[in-house]
Amino acid sequence: MTLTINVTVNGKSVSADAEPSTSLLEFLRDVLNYKGTKLCCNTGECGACTVLFNGKPVNSCVVPAADAVGAQVVTVEGLADGEKLHPVQQAFIDTGAVQCGYCTPGFIISVKALLDRTKRPTPAEIEEAVSGNICRCTGYAKIVDAIALAAERMEGSTLGIASGGRS
């Protein structure tokens, strides 16, 4: 049985077919060719496949593509403004928070969601926001620095939480 999925991805309306068992992750990567979203554990535990689903971070590997009908989905490809990277992406580069890079798209989406709901996250909120994202290079300190830096830049002020003696 084939379903027709009408969905908005990164602001663009698209329509394509999927099986009822197809995950949103497979649909994004293999049908729509958005390869920025990564396949890793495929069981909803590691966060590499995180996308925004109607503004909220979800693990796209455990969301049925069928549920995306009528939804707004944002992947890592949807953050940059032309050639200009999103402040969260730029902060990850500037703090050296990218090692092998495989977990990075998932982290960046989780952080985008955090900064959409909280302009001035506390260190505890930062850690909670990415607790569902696993980095096997274990570069967590730099990632937390990147989040604090992105928050500061987006707020246009100094929160005093970036590079809190971590590096």
């Binding site: 909220k56 971070p57 979800v58 693990n59 969601a113 909670e128 926001a129 607790s131 569902g132």
Partner: peptide, 9 residues
């Protein structure tokens, strides 16, 4: 209960 991603779903 698990991660934010799972709690959202």
């Amino acid at each position: 209960f698990a991660s934010l991603q799972i709690r959202n779903t």
